[in-house]
Design a protein around this nucleic acid. Structure first.
Lengths: 357, 357
DNA sequence: TGTTAGCACTCCACCTAAATGAGTGCTAAC
DNA sequence: GTTAGCACTCATTTAGGTGGAGTGCTAACA
């Protein structure tokens, strides 16, 4: 088990995997015998293959077929790739991120570019804060018995809640409440709002203490609502390009994951939470390694991007296990790099946009 | 061409279609001979079938196979069904719409119920106004050089825009601008805001006229942003249950339509705009009749629902041409009926919800 | 004139058998 | 340690054969 691979075995394993990535067909000993410059006969290769199979790196779909990589084999390949990667110059064809007014448009556009460029399916999650801190609260009267609460959290994400009130609040009272709310709550995250704070505020609000409760509820709601994070996808149809994914049952599962988003957001959470473990935020989930069951026949490559002030989101590529990891990783790095450059500091961004105009 | 169907031909045609809906297999003359109570031999049926084929209602997948309905045949069937429908009692198993705080949740839930109940794919568009009228505008200072504009349009849809300002605006000025904006713009739709109005407002704003322009832009943006309407889907995977839709190429097209939403919204627009033509808002698009090319192998059944004050949205079921139109129509009627009852008047709604609690 | 029985014909779907060929494992020789 | 050779396996392809469902047509019948 603990046996290390010999250099020759490594060469053979990598050759097998590379060939399989290309063709999608099981690869035989004769192919490898010719493909590598080891100058070994197919018989020798067969012996080595037999060993590699015993070690769990490759497997046979059936007797007397060639070998295909196992999840462990892919894992070896990907790790090997990553180690190599650092020194390589990124000569990837750049995908241009066009500036757009709305973040949503940018995200959709990125997802589309990714899927078109890679021929795999792509997803991207809207950036979000770990810790949503309140930045600004504003109550405004909208009708006789409705007020609208505008709640801005860090990163200029704006939430609204409509609050029904029984009593009539005049402008002056509203102003007082606004001041009260902002002085007491600014800079706090939802966890940090203690009962004591609420009690204190209610006392200060006097006869209007009921409204305070409603507002707090609204605030909680607004911050929590962020939990089902927005995810945009593109190129789901690409999975039909890979026979190993496009039989009815598998396709059905994958499509469902894409439609319901729930499972995609599991991937995002997983990625964001284990983010520090890997260099440059790139993570590769192969088959069963994936956090979601529906993706067990796929590989998922994710990257974390970070905008201004620690807003983070996740980009993911979903494809067959035999995906072109090399290209995908390069592409993701290129994208995150560009996002970084475009948005890193709000000030910087504006400057950059101006220069381009 | 203009030849009317004889009563017997009608019976046979309907029998063919019904049988095909059930089995999905081409249906032959012998089957019909036994299935109907016409007491005709298969030979006679064959003669009639031959005529029906010539008239374009049915077709043969290949020589010496049974017949399957053509689009024209389905159309005949559906129209026939609709005519019958009115007198029938709706004994449909009710799908319960649970109340929820957020419209979004209700919509998602409806889509899900629909797809699960029918075994077809379902979509639903968020309700939206034809004519978005401004109801309320509120500017609030958020930082040194940012103000947030909260714009409420009819139906309590809230939009936000962050506006960057050069000059510092104090509270008093902001209050004045708020009053100015509300008195001038309330009740207007974006088309109704004339240049004259803007000019007048700018004059009144004096040195702060620049802000007015920005706000108007924001308003325009906010109302316009509604154009790409929100659409929720569910049960895309159901298309894999129908062999005639689940080969790679067709599935790929349909899935794309579902993912990109663009084509679905075309259906919504089509439905909403030709809404008056049909009774009870139910419309059936069979194959090529569909407004979107990707759905040419499907049938699409849509229904319009209407909430409070003329807010309208569309519900759609997408399935194979041989879908159970009867059930689908009933289901859609049931859903729209319930939505109607739940939300028709805001006041009514609240009462109802309270009663249920 | 409309209906029916009968028959020849077509074509798909299914099965079988045989041929193919890529690939393996093993053994014996180098 | 490497290799040539050989027997064996098994998925895939090809070809041929059969059955059955269904049609179109014709001739007979009421």
């Amino acid at each position: 088990m603990g046996m290390e691979l010999s250099s020759r075995q490594e060469t053979i394993l990598l050759a097998i995997i590379k060939t399989y990535l290309d063709t999608g067909e099981p690869v035989g000993s004769r192919t490898i015998s010719k493909y590598t410059d080891l100058n070994l006969s197919s018989a020798t290769i067969r012996n080595e293959m037999s060993d590699l199979e015993e070690m769990g790196y490759i497997m046979q779909p059936h007797t007397s077929a060639g070998r295909i990589p196992s999840d462990k084999g892919y894992r070896f390949y990907v790790d090997h790739l990553m180690a190599d990667k650092e020194k390589e110059v990124d000569e990837m064809k750049e995908i241009l991120i066009e500036k757009a007014d709305k973040m949503e448009q940018v995200l959709k556009q990125i997802a589309k570019s990714l899927s078109v460029n890679t021929n795999y399916a792509a997803m991207i999650s809207a950036p979000r804060y770990h810790q949503n801190k309140l930045k600004f609260i504003q109550l405004s009267r909208m009708g006789d018995d409705q007020i609208v609460a505008v709640i801005v959290v860090e990163g200029n994400i704006i939430k609204n809640e409509i609050i029904e009130v029984q009593e009539h609040l005049d402008d002056e009272t509203l102003l007082k409440l606004n001041i009260l709310l902002n002085t007491n709550l600014n800079g706090l995250s939802i966890e940090e709002i203690s009962l004591a704070t609420i009690k204190k505020m209610k006392e200060q609000a006097g006869i209007h203490s009921e409204v305070i409760s409603d507002v707090i509820d609204a605030v909680a709601e607004a911050i929590k609502a962020d939990e089902d994070l927005e995810i945009y996808t593109s190129g789901a149809k690409n999975i039909f390009k890979y026979p190993e994914l496009s039989d009815n049952e598998k396709a059905s599962e994958i499509i469902t994951a894409f439609e319901e988003k729930k499972q995609l957001s599991d991937i995002v959470y997983e990625t964001l939470s284990s983010q520090e473990e890997y260099n440059s935020g790139i993570q590769v989930y192969i088959g069963e390694e994936s956090p979601v069951q529906n993706m067990r026949d796929c590989s998922v490559v994710t990257a974390t991007y970070e905008l201004d002030e620690g807003m983070r989101g996740t980009i993911g590529i979903i494809g067959p296990k035999r995906m072109d990891y090399d290209k995908v990783v390069k592409t993701l790095k290129s994208i995150t790099g560009q996002l970084d450059a475009l948005y890193k500091k709000d000030g910087k961004r504006k400057k950059k946009l101006k220069n381009e105009e």
